[in-house]
Design a protein around this nucleic acid. Sequence first.
DNA 1: CTGAAAGCGCTTACAG
DNA 2: CTGAAAGCGCTTACAG
Lengths: 347, 347
Amino acid sequence: MAKNELKSATSIDVADMAGVSLATVDRVLNGRRGVRHETRERVKDAIERLGFRPDASAANLAKRRTYRFLFVLPSRHSGFAEHLEQAVKAAPAALDTERVVISIKKAEMIDHGALLATLREIDPSEWDGIAVKATDAPGIREALDDLVDNGVPVVTLVSDVPSSKRQRYIGIDNTAAGRVAGNLMGRFLHRLEGSVGLIAGSLMIRDHVERWVGFEQVIKADFPHLRVLPVAESSDNCDVAGQIVERMLDEHRDLIGIYSISAGNKGILASLERLKPQPRPTLIVHELSPPIRRALLDGAIDAVINQDVEMEAHRALRSLIALCKNEPALGGHDRVGIGIFLRDNLP
Amino acid sequence: MAKNELKSATSIDVADMAGVSLATVDRVLNGRRGVRHETRERVKDAIERLGFRPDASAANLAKRRTYRFLFVLPSRHSGFAEHLEQAVKAAPAALDTERVVISIKKAEMIDHGALLATLREIDPSEWDGIAVKATDAPGIREALDDLVDNGVPVVTLVSDVPSSKRQRYIGIDNTAAGRVAGNLMGRFLHRLEGSVGLIAGSLMIRDHVERWVGFEQVIKADFPHLRVLPVAESSDNCDVAGQIVERMLDEHRDLIGIYSISAGNKGILASLERLKPQPRPTLIVHELSPPIRRALLDGAIDAVINQDVEMEAHRALRSLIALCKNEPALGGHDRVGIGIFLRDNLP
DNA sequence: CTGAAAGCGCTTACAG
DNA sequence: CTGAAAGCGCTTACAG
C-alpha cells in the first residue's frame, strides 16, 4: 500500500495548494460568507484535487460547542416508558464527537391537559432543541408550534403530531406496524374464522390510531374471514386492559386473536392466564420488555413488534444537532425499523 | 442549569488537582507502566472527584494512529456478497474518531482450495487486523490460526470457524436464524401436512449447516406433522437451485414449503414462476436484496430473514480496533440481531 | 519515576 | 474580503 494512502490531506494542505490561509479554507468549508467568488473556487478546486475530507473530531474539538436538549417523556410507569427514558439518558455517550447535555421532563400523556401545561412551562431560550413524545390532542399542536416559532428545533419522538411545525418525526411508521400485526395475525390464524379484539391506550395518541388503521386495512383486504371488534381503550392501564379482555372473552365466544396496540399487557396476560380460554387467542403485542420477553419465551405471546428505542434516542440527538447546524435532512435517517420478534430471535 | 454542568473536567484539571503533569495523568489514564503507586492513586482520586471522562476525539486527534484492516470477502456474484462488500467499504466513514483504512481481498468461498490459497497469501505484517467470511473446511482453520499466531487479530464475519483461534465472531446466531425460519414455516402452514424442502449452498459453510440444524430442531419439536426433506446443495448457484426446486416438485407432490438457506433465490423463484404449483409452497429465504424485496412485495416470498450487514461491518471494525488496543470485549457487541421481514416492515 | 513542550487538524476572535 | 495566532483536550518523544 502506498504510504500516501495512509496520510490524508489536511486543511493546511488545502490552504497551501490554494494559496490562502487556514481561515479562508474554513470559511469555504463551512459555507460562511465573505469569500470572493474566485478565491472560493480556488479552494474548492484544491479540496477536490486533494480528496480532502475534514476531520470531524478535530473540528468539534476546536468548536467546543455544547448542545442543551430537552426530552419530554411519559411519566406513566410502563416498561416501554422506562426503557425509553434509559435509552435517552444513555444516548449522549454514544456520540463520540459532539458534546450534548440532555434534560428530561416527565409529562402525563393520557391526560393531555397535563402534557399541555408541561409544554407551556418550557422556556425556549434555555434549550437548543426539544424532543417530545406527544399526543395529537387539542392544544398540543399549538404548543409545539409556539416552540418552533420561538426558534427552537422540535422533533416528535415515537408518536408524531404531523400537523404541527415540528421539524422531524423520529420513530417507526406506525401504520406499517399495524399492518405487520395484521399480517402476522392473519397468517398465524390461517383460515380459521372468528373475532379479533383490539386494545389501545387512547385514540388521542397518534401512534395507537395509526396501528389500529393499519391492522384493519390488512385484515379487510387479505383475511376477510376474520372479524375485527371495535377498539377498546385502556388508558394504558393494566387493570383496565385486563377487564377488557375478560369482557371480550365473555361477549365473543369466537375470539381467536388479540392485538394489544399499546401498554397494559401485564393485565391482558393475567386475565388470559386466569380464564384459560381454549384455545388461547393468538396474542400479538408491542415493545419488548423483560416481562414480555418472558411471556414470549413461555409461549403466552405469539409475536412482539418492537421499536429500537436506543436507535430512536440516538437519531433524535443526531437530528436535533443537524437542525441546530441547519444541515439538510439525511435521507432515511429518521425512520426506525419495525422489529418482529418470535421466541428465537430475541436480542 | 448550573454553568459548571456544561464544562466538564479536562486532564489539565486532573493534573492540577493531583499535583502532577499531564504526561503522568496520561500514563494513569491509559494504564501505561512507570508510575509510582502513590502517584497513581492520587491521580485516580482526582479523576474520581472531578468526574473526569477523557475526550475520545481529542485523544484520537493526538494519536493520529491509522489502522490497516483487511477484509476477505466472497468473490461469487450474489446480492448478499455485493451488499456486504458495499457495507464494508462504507463502514470506516461512520467511525467518527478512529482512522481506518481497509482493503478487500476477494476469495472463492465454495471452492475452499481457492480460499485457502488466498489466506496463505496474506502477509501478517501488512495488517493491523483481518476480518474473514470463511468456510469451516479443512486447512482453513490452520490458516486462520497461523495469522493469529503471527500476532494479527482475526475476526470471522457472517460465518464462524469456532474451532480456530479467531478472537471474535461477528454475525448472527445462525442456529437461531434457522429456528426462526422453522417457526415461521410451521406457523404459516398451520396444521397442514406435507413435505418441506431445504436448499443450502454448501454444507462446508458453517452458517448454512447451523441454519439447517436450527430449522430441523423446531420442526421436529413443534410441527411434527411436517416432513423435512434431506438438504440439497446448490453451490449457491441459481441454475442449480432452480433445478433442485423442479426435482423437489416432481418427486414430492405434497411439497408445501421451501426454506432457502443461502443464495440462489433467483433460480428458485424462476422455477416456481414457471411451474406454478398450486398452492405455491410457502417460501422463506435469507437476506434482503432488491430482487428479494420485490418478490416479497409481489407475494412470491412469504418471509425474509435478514442480517444487517452495515451493522456487521461496523462491529467488525470496532472489534478489530478493540483487539488492537487490547480492550476487553464489550458484552453483546458482536452478536447482530436476526431481522424478520414481511411485506410491511421492509426497511 | 516524572515533566516541559510540541503537535494532532480544525475554529475563532481579532486585526487589517 | 483575508490572514496570523491562540486554543480545543489529549499524546508523544525526549530529557532528566
